[in-house]
Simulated scan of single mutants.
Amino acid sequence: MIHELRIYTCLPERLPALQQRFETATLAIWDRLGIRSLGFWTTMIGSSSNDLTYLLEWRSLAEREQKWAEFVADREWQEARAKSEADGPIIANIASSLLQPTRFYRGFEGTPA
């Protein structure tokens, strides 16, 4: 498994719009396309309270490439994005890291993967 850590830094006061887009559109599209999310977080204490951080799980880089391309090209996603940005842009920056487990990785439940 490969995990992708994504951090979206929103423009001031635009984090609620991004969260609403995930809740009302993005997650359903991901379910339809088979994109697996493992969790979402906002920053309680840290450098930016405008961040939405989430983790995706991929079987391979090829799966990520294929499914992410399908997502970006998806008409329903494009419409949801346009609707959510009707009042202006939401995201100032996106940081993405592809992570591979170490040999001592114990999974999310504390058991060997």
Rank of each mutant, 00 (worst) to 15 (best):
T102F: 06
Y8A: 04
Y105D: 12
D31F: 02
T9F: 03
E63D: 15
Y54R: 02
L56Y: 04
W30V: 04
Q100L: 14
E57I: 05
I35W: 00
S84M: 04
A25K: 02
R32P: 04
R81F: 07
T43W: 04
A95W: 13
Q100D: 15
T26A: 06
R6E: 10
T53E: 09
T43R: 00
R106S: 05
G34E: 07
A25M: 06
K83V: 00
L55F: 08
F104M: 05
A25V: 12
L61S: 11
T43N: 08
N93P: 02
S97P: 04
L5G: 07
E13H: 14
A28F: 09
F22R: 04
I45D: 02
Q19G: 11
L38K: 09
H3C: 10
P12Q: 13
A113D: 13
L18F: 06
S48T: 15
A95F: 12
P16K: 06
Y8G: 01
L99G: 10
E4I: 13
Q78M: 08
L99R: 14
E79K: 11
R81I: 00
E109N: 14
S37T: 14
R32K: 14
S49C: 05
E13N: 15
E63C: 10
N93C: 06
W30N: 09
Q20I: 00
T43E: 14
R36K: 14
R21C: 03
T26M: 05
I91Q: 03
P101V: 02
C10N: 06
E85A: 00
T26D: 09
L55C: 05
L18G: 03
L11Q: 12
R36W: 01
I45V: 14
